[in-house]
Design a protein around this nucleic acid. Structure first.
Length: 557
RNA sequence: GGGCGUGUGGCCUAGUCUGGAUAAGGCGACAGCCUCCUAAGCUGUAAGUCGGGGGUUCAAAUCCCCUCACGCCCGCCA
């Protein structure tokens, strides 16, 4: 399909001899697969749009498709038997949706949550966007490293450290979960409110920060140690979402190995910075961003700049997934990197915050839904659903399927929304497994598996099918939709828009459901084998599409 | 106050970058479809001034200006 599109674009460009990019649109299906409105060329060629369309249609000759004029529009339709044969082949041979390896690497930084509390559904948006994006880049042939930047030297960790050394566990509530992040969050939350009320506690926390800055080994060790424990909790939660990071970089390592100091020195010499009482700052418009305190110790922006310099040595592209609260900060970091002639510069993908049933979510006020809690509820709900409709599955099959469906539902519910849009988390929506949801898509995979299981033949013979007997509208539409995958993949990457992949998954699944309704497979007639090959092809394709979203494809549910 | 972002049927969202042929899905509501490959499915109905106002254009949800609402940021915190 992508080939066909590219061919049209090239031919049109050549025939009209124009520089401007030819942008094709997708018309309603009965008109064709792609359409070109000719209004744009009217002023250029000094002819009426429908005349241009008419002339162009006569001249254009496509290898694998038809051209038709419709007033000022030209509609292009691909040769369906060619498309069917090729799409089936690529799915069945395992080449579907696989782009050639690019000699280009990208580091996608995501999650990078403060190591003071468990992940909640608000910051869960970050890993889900980041991991999905990573999967999209991998499919497109990039070498991808996903990285978690561990902020183990910040104020939040200082508060946590003070709390662990000064608060008795007896004074704290039971943890929500027996995981290190939940256990330690109790200390943090308790201390956090003390810091606000009690100046003595505030002073103690500040002195911890001071000692850490001065290189006090005992304090630094405590910071690193405690944040590591919280991080272990984050890793466990992420693993349940099928998210595994390739690399973890701690802020402390950048400070301890002198990387930060080196960067600060370079910035000081670069003349782009100002100096006030020994504190180094970067002028941005009328504002200034401080990089160091007047005692010379580094501030977060300086460390972040150092981190990005370190990253830039390791890849051709850098992408950071960040909450919208980091927007202005990130742009400043980028500006600083630019002035130091660092390449590649990072590009950012910002996501908006998640509110909870209409109200603001916050870890400190405990107005949040833990990711672990959401996962548990989703799995529990999935299990209930399975139990109401299946009585033929073994307990371990039920557990496995419930995990797959629950995890998918959570990921999908979050990735389906464009990152920059606000999200309001509602239990009702998150646990709704109908319509536009992961279970809807997964269900079609289970159905396809079920058909193949019931048939019971050797699936190898399906690979020989060319699909020439597939001519029903629902069959053709399903194949066409499957064949759109590479376009969606490219679109998602180019626009940093992973939600498009979620949208697409639902579209393909809907087409499968229509095929399922209109075209009975196991009728034992002459179409059975052709249709089985389409079912098998769909099963392979939807597995890959779900995998792009990090969602697994259950064999039964 | 300044900067950035968002505003599409009762609710959630796609489409906005790159303006085009009747504004697309889902949830909820209502009415139907399991003697037939899993009904987590399918079909139909009701429901829309694309926040509001101006402008550009043959053509605006989409581009420009103004305005309103909401979110985020504006620390020698991170």
């Amino acid at each position: 399909m992508l080939e066909f599109k590219n061919e049209i674009e090239e031919k049109v460009k050549e025939l009209l001899d124009v520089d401007r990019p030819v942008s094709l649109e997708t018309p309603s299906p009965e008109r064709g697969d792609y359409a070109l409105p000719c209004f744009d060329f009217a002023s250029l060629l000094k002819k009426a749009p429908d005349v241009i369309a008419k002339e162009l249609v006569q001249k254009i000759d496509l290898k694998r498709g038809d051209v038709e004029q419709s007033g000022p529009y030209i509609n292009f339709s691909i040769d369906t038997s060619y498309l069917v044969e090729n799409t089936l082949k690529s799915c069945l041979e395992g080449t579907f949706g696989r782009f050639p390896h690019k000699d280009e690497s990208v580091i996608i930084e995501h999650t990078s949550a403060n190591p003071n509390a468990p992940l909640h559904v608000g910051n869960a948006r970050n890993p889900i966007i980041g991991d999905t994006l990573a999967r999209i880049y991998r499919r497109l042939g990039f070498d991808v490293i996903t990285e978690y930047y561990v902020d183990d030297m910040g104020r939040q960790v200082a508060i946590l450290t003070w709390a662990l050394d000064n608060i008795r566990e007896d004074d704290l509530p039971e943890p929500d979960y027996n995981k290190p992040d939940h256990e330690m969050a109790r200390y943090y939350q308790h201390a956090s409110s003390m810091v606000e009320k009690d100046d003595e506690v505030l002073g103690a926390v500040q002195s911890l920060i001071q000692r850490m800055e001065e290189g006090d080994e005992e304090v630094i060790e405590a910071f690193i140690d405690y944040s590591k424990k919280v991080l272990e909790g984050h890793k466990d939660s992420l693993a349940r979402l099928n998210i595994f990071q390739d690399s973890y970089k701690t802020e402390s390592s950048l400070v301890l190995d002198g990387e930060v100091k080196k960067t600060v020195d370079e910035l000081r010499e670069s003349k782009v910075c100002g100096d006030e009482d020994g504190a180094l700052y970067l002028p941005i418009g009328d504002d200034r961003i401080f990089l160091t305190r007047s005692d010379g110790t580094s501030l977060y922006p300086a460390r972040d700049i150092a981190y990005h310099i370190w990253k830039s040595r390791r890849a051709d592209r850098l992408i950071d997934v960040l909450g919208e609260d980091h927007k202005s900060h990130a742009r400043i970091v980028k500006k600083a990197l630019e002035s130091l002639n660092i390449s590649p510069l990072p590009s950012f993908i910002f996501y908006s915050f998640v509110s909870l049933e209409g109200e603001k979510m916050s870890t400190r006020s405990a107005r949040s839904v833990w990711l672990d809690e959401l996962m548990d509820n989703a799995e529990e709900r999935a299990k209930e659903e399975i139990l109401t409709r299946r009585d033929d599955l073994q307990p371990d099959q039920i557990e496995k399927s419930a995990r797959e469906v629950g995890m998918g539902a959570v990921r999908f519910n979050i990735i389906r929304v464009q990152p920059e849009k606000h999200m309001d988390f509602r239990w009702e929506d998150a646990l709704n497994f109908q319509g536009s949801s992961a279970p809807f898509v997964q269900y079609t995979h289970a159905r396809a598996c079920s058909i193949l299981r019931k048939w019971g033949g050797d699936e190898e013979i399906l690979k020989e099918q060319d699909g020439s007997l597939l001519d029903h509208e629902s069959e053709i539409k399903l194949v066409k939709t499957i064949a759109k995958y590479p376009e969606v993949l490219l679109d998602s990457m180019e626009n940093s828009a992973p939600h498009l992949m979620a949208k697409y998954a639902v579209t393909v699944a809907s087409e499968f459901n229509l095929f399922y309704r209109d075209c009975p497979v196991l009728q034992g007639d002459e179409k059975t084998v052709s249709r089985l090959s389409l079912v098998k092809a769909y099963k392979e394709a939807i597995s890959i599409i779900l995998d792009t979203l990090g969602i697994s494809a259950p064999e039964y549910m």
